[in-house]
């Protein structure tokens, strides 16, 4: 059972997936509560385009993809804020799939590819090296510090951005900071989760947490913990059943979602069976 731990690549992948899972779970809380779930999907596809572009131009992957991702995130934020009549989600769909298509087009044009882009699409922990591990750790450290020190402002901005502004919260800065963190997290997640599965890693843990609690603080703790656990256990399971790491992480999280749905419906049925005298 502990046999895979003798392989260095497995331990690296395990650490990477745990950190990435926790990060996605943490940011996912804010994304889901702002009803911007499609952002994870859009952003990961946009960043895939950025990754290919930086590869073709022989530019550092992390720097190139981060700049590309941050620009996309800002663009998405601006579009959401403006609430155009065409609908923000439609505009985002166009921006991000165009970026994705650009990546695909470049791959099909360039015949001299030495590197597999399967990892960027579906995730592959075998490809995680020490440099990737340091990048993930750096992003995790920055995210934790930023969320810790802007926790109250971030909560208010997520709950009601208009009113938060009237209470003096610099919501513009908070949004920009959040976009920056989100882009960085998606970039470092690309190798572990893959562009096609990041959205699920961002959305599923917070929804499970929401089903289990009505308290914001607890939701943050549960979602982060669950994301990290699914990363860890997902990689472990993937070793034994030989499926891609991203898929196994997401399927595990989805199993938790099913269990949480079941739990919530049983709980609500029990609560409704007793007259709600506590209301009032």
């Amino acid at each position: 059972m502990f046999e895979p731990f003798q392989y260095e690549f497995f331990v690296r992948g395990l650490i990477a997936a745990t950190m990435v899972g926790g990060l996605c779970g943490l940011l996912g809380v804010y994304i889901v509560l702002r009803r911007m779930s499609y952002i994870g999907h859009g952003l990961s596809h946009a960043i895939f385009g950025g990754a290919v572009v930086s590869f073709v131009m022989s530019f550092n992957f992390y720097i190139g993809a981060s700049i590309w991702g941050f620009a996309s995130a800002l663009l998405i934020n601006a579009t959401t804020r403006r609430r155009p009549t065409i609908g923000a989600d439609a505009a985002i769909g166009i921006i991000t799939t165009a970026s994705f298509a650009l990546g695909v087009a470049l791959i099909s044009r360039t015949s001299t590819f030495t590197r597999s882009f399967d990892a960027a699409l579906f995730g592959n922990i075998l490809a995680v090296d020490n440099r990737d591990l340091y990048a993930i750790a750096a992003v995790a450290g920055f995210t934790i510090i930023a969320v810790f020190f802007s926790y109250r402002q971030l909560l208010f901005t997520t709950f009601d951005p208009d009113v938060a502004r009237y209470y003096g919260v610099p919501t513009g800065w908070i949004d920009t900071l959040f976009s920056l963190i989100l882009a960085a997290v998606v970039v470092v997640s690309l190798q572990v989760m893959g562009a096609t599965l990041i959205a699920a890693a961002i959305v599923v843990p917070p929804i499970v947490a929401r089903l289990l609690t009505d308290s914001f603080h607890r939701m943050v703790a549960i979602s982060t913990g669950l994301g990290a656990f699914c990363g860890l256990a997902g990689i472990w399971i993937s070793y034994f059943i030989d499926v891609s790491s991203g898929a196994s992480i997401v399927l595990l999280a989805t199993a938790f979602f099913g269990a949480a749905m079941l739990y919530a419906s049983v709980r609500d049925r029990l609560a409704n069976a007793v007259p709600t005298a506590a209301r009032g």
């Binding site: 020190f149 926790y151 109250r152 909560l155 709950f159 208009d162 919260v169 009505d214 308290s215 914001f216």
Partner: peptide, 27 residues
């Protein structure tokens, strides 16, 4: 009617939002 009633916050957590800028740097 502008409030998101499904947002996971307790009464106390809403009231403390009023101190979002003055409540110190910690969560």
């Amino acid at each position: 009617e502008t409030v998101d009633w499904n947002f996971p916050v307790t009464v106390e957590q809403v009231v403390m939002m009023g101190r979002a800028m003055e409540g110190g740097p910690f969560p």
